[in-house]
Structures are given as C-alpha cells and as structure tokens.
Simulated assay, not measured.
Amino acid sequence: MNRWTWLAGLLGLIAVLALVLHQDVGAILAAVQHAGWALLWLLPFHLVPLWLDVLGWRVLLAPRDPEGRAGVAVLLWIAAIREAFNRLLPVANIGGEIVGIRLVKRRGVDGAAATASIVLEVLLTLVNQYLFTALGVVLLIAITRQVGALDSLLFALLASLPLPLGLFWLVRHGQLFARLESVAERILGGRTRLTELINGQRLDQDIRALSTPRWRLLAAGGWQLAGFVVGSLETWLALRLLGFQVSVWDAIAIEAVTQALRHLIFIVPAGLGVQEGGLVLFGSLIGVPVEASLALSLVKRLREIGFGVPALVSWYWVEVRQVRQRPQRQPQ
C-alpha cells in the first residue's frame, strides 16, 4: 500500500467518524439492534447477484473451456475471492482480477483464455456500471422530481458513455495488448519475462474469439446487468430489516448512484467515507433519515466482512496447500 492509499484511507476513516459522531450514535445502533439476527439473511442473499454475474462470466469463458473445468460453482467461489480482494484490501480494484486469473488457470484453463475472459468481463462491467448509474439517476429524478443537478449529472453520464464503449471497441478490435507488448519491449530493450507474460498477440486473439459471436457479449452483459439490479435489493432488504420502509425503486436508485461513486473514487481503501457519504447524500434526497443511511452502511460493511473474510481464508488455504505440495512434485 503506497502512502497516497494510506492517506486516502485515513481521510476516509476520518470522514466516517465525523459523520457518525455528528449524528445520534444511539439511533444508529438501535436500528441495527432492531434488525437483530435477521441481518444474517444478507449473507446467502448476496450469492444471488454474484451467481448472476458468474453466469455472464461463464458464457464468455465457455468457448475455451468446453469441458467445464471452471464451471459455475468454481467460478462462483473465485468471484467471491475476487470481490473480497477488491472490497476489503487496498488493491485498487485490480488485485482480485489477478488472483482470479491465477485460480482459473489452476483449473486447467489456458492462461491467455482466462485473462481474456476477465478482461472482457471487466469491460462489460464498466459499460453496465454506466447503464446502471444512468438508471439510478433517472429514478432519482422521477422520485424527487428534481431536475437541476441530477439532470446535468445524467447528461454528463450519457455524454461520457462513448468512452467505455470506445475502450471496449479498442480492446476487441485494436490489438491493444500486442501494441502494449511492443511498447514494453522498446522500453525494456527487448523480450523480457514481463513481455512474455503479456503475450499480447495471443491475448488479443483470445479476446476476439471469446467475444464472437456478438450474442455472447449480449448474453454476458445481460446477466451482469441483472446482477446489478438484483444486488440493489440488498439495500431494500437491509433498510426494511432496520425498520425503514422504502420501495424497490428507491433502493435501486440509492444503490446505483452510491456504487458509481465508490467505483469512481476507487483509490480510497474499502470506499471508507465514500460509501457513507453517498448513502447519506442520495438517501436524503428520497427521504431516508441520515441515521438510517449510516446504519445501512454499517450493515453493508458487516456483510462484506462476513462474506469476504471466509472467501479470503479459503484462498489462503489453497495457496498454502499449493506451496506445501510443490516440493513433493520436484524430482529427487
């Protein structure tokens, strides 16, 4: 973790403490106590949007893994680990993808194919994040009937949509990784372990192969977008358990714009302060009390820990097991 990440995390923590101490801490804890053990339902419920996202990933990977060595169950476990890395550790939302590639390769899937599937999945996630955020802003405008700043935000969001679409086109058709490999060779003065690891030409070929025909991308993107929408029901369920009645549309609006804010300011570890500020800001627009928004953020963080820590422990156990088995495989 570099010093800027440390600083961002410290400022985020200070922002969280300031928000909590400025409000009625007793009311926040009372809301959590009101929900009680029923909050544990959020743990198995989180499997549903994660499973939908994994179905999209499996659609992308299937051409290079027709035997199903990395099937839905395996990918669901890997997706939980990827999410835990990106949500709980200061890895700037990329550490989970690197670990994911490593784990898919261990299932016998070609490394370039595993990397290509995750690259495509991340790009589709970027496009779907734009669409989901736009849906949230539209819902906020419809619910609050405020058109000023929200209308401007929606216009800016739609105006910038060509950026992820252009990046998607460049990765799929522009031989991006082959070009990166060529640049790396010029900088490093020839072939190195790094450029061999990139293997740009092979990676570009696999990306094109996995994204053809187009229905594959549409299917994967559709599963992902469904995961976004279903995942927002966690907010609806959590608020109801906390004793605050909101509609499904309210929950989708809050989740979409708060999630977008957290992804935008990704440098802050675990989104400290970003998630809390977003929930307070956007929740207040539709009438959710500040105490309820902070209680919701606390519950979300408890769910992330309760779901993510076992995933990280399972990954650590697999890594330790692999290390212990290596000497046995070496010839005497």
Rank of each mutant, 00 (worst) to 15 (best):
E97W: 08
W51D: 08
P63E: 00
T125K: 09
W51F: 15
A84R: 10
L88R: 03
N93I: 09
L76E: 08
P63C: 04
A112G: 08
D65V: 04
A73R: 14
G71W: 10
N93T: 09
I118P: 00
K105R: 14
A113L: 02
E83R: 13
L47F: 13
D110K: 02
E83V: 13
R102P: 04
D65F: 04
E97R: 09
D53V: 07
D65W: 01
R58A: 08
L89C: 06
L76T: 14
R58N: 08
L103F: 12
A80H: 12
V109G: 02
V59D: 04
V72L: 14
D53I: 07
R107V: 07
L120F: 00
N86D: 04
A116N: 00
V91S: 14
L60E: 01
I81Q: 14
L120V: 01
R69F: 05
V59A: 06
P90E: 05
N86P: 02
V54A: 09
R107H: 11
T125Q: 14
L55E: 11
R64F: 05
T115G: 02
E67Q: 13
R102I: 09
V74N: 09
R102V: 09
V91K: 07
P49G: 07
A92F: 12
S117H: 00
E83D: 14
N128P: 02
L126Q: 13
Y130P: 04
T115W: 01
G108K: 03
L52K: 08
V72R: 12
N128G: 12
L123R: 03
F85G: 06
V104S: 09
G71L: 10
V48T: 07
V119W: 00
V91P: 07
I78K: 08
E121K: 03
T115V: 04
L55C: 11
G108E: 11
V109H: 03
E83N: 14
P90S: 01
R102W: 15
L75M: 15
A80R: 13
V54T: 15
A80T: 11
G100E: 13
R58V: 04
V72N: 12
D65Q: 05
A114K: 01
F85M: 15
L103A: 12
R87F: 08
G100R: 14
D65L: 05
W77T: 11
V104W: 10
E83W: 14
G95L: 10
V99P: 07
V122C: 02
V99Y: 10
Q129L: 14
I78C: 08
L55G: 05
F85I: 10
D53S: 12
A73T: 11
I118N: 00
P90D: 02
L124T: 00
L55I: 06
F85D: 09
L88I: 07
I118H: 00
L61H: 03
E97N: 12
A84K: 09
V59K: 05
L124I: 01
F85R: 06
G71P: 06
L61Q: 03
P90L: 04
